[in-house]
């Protein structure tokens, strides 16, 4: 089987866009032979559009960036607009979108998860929204076996709160 799955994360600096993408890459490591994660951001410590691309594949990937994205995880309106206007998105049909409905207002098609609102309610910390959204993504698109996922969560150095945030996402 020649399978290549491209997942595009988009948010702004400070939301943990790169962190969530890297964690997904780590989680996918046991199930996919080839996994890559690449981030794009500016020199600002906060606020500029930040994207991260995770590619899962069964064969060696020469090009580890998004060509035809399968799933777009939108974490902020600014990134949503940038990615939906990107050439790769425009030329791809059937792209699935899952988005943080607290911060992305105009996503017409897609699965709305009020991740930032949930993070504030449950953890009193908006910064947990990335992991809630990651959890919701993992639940919606069963790309990674749940057992393998929990194994990575246990083995990795995730804090208790981080694990709880992913679990909260998985329960959405």
């Amino acid at each position: 089987m020649n399978k290549r799955i491209e997942i595009w994360f988009g948010g702004i600096g400070g939301q943990g866009v790169v962190y969530a993408a890297n964690l997904l890459g780590q989680m996918a490591g046991s199930e996919y032979k080839y996994v890559s994660a690449a981030a794009h951001y500016g020199p600002e410590s906060r606020g500029s559009v930040t994207t991260s691309e995770v590619v899962l594949s069964d064969k060696p990937m020469d090009y580890p960036y998004v060509e035809s994205p399968n799933i777009f995880i939108a974490m902020h309106q600014k990134a949503y607009e940038e990615i939906t206007h990107h050439k790769a998105t425009k030329t791809t049909k059937g792209i699935n979108i899952i988005y943080d409905s607290t911060l992305v207002g105009k996503a017409a098609d897609g699965i709305a998860i009020p991740a930032t609102k949930l993070a504030q309610e449950y953890f009193k910390n908006a910064q947990m929204a990335n992991l809630i959204l990651l959890g919701a993504f993992l639940k919606t698109y069963t790309l990674i076996d749940r057992q393998a996922l929990r194994k990575v969560m246990t083995e990795s150095q995730l804090s208790k709160t981080a694990r709880e945030a992913i679990e909260l996402g998985l329960a959405q």
Partner: peptide, 9 residues
């Protein structure tokens, strides 16, 4: 930068 910051197995 692309290779230095890329994550892979």
């Amino acid at each position: 930068e692309a290779v230095g910051h890329l994550r892979e197995k």
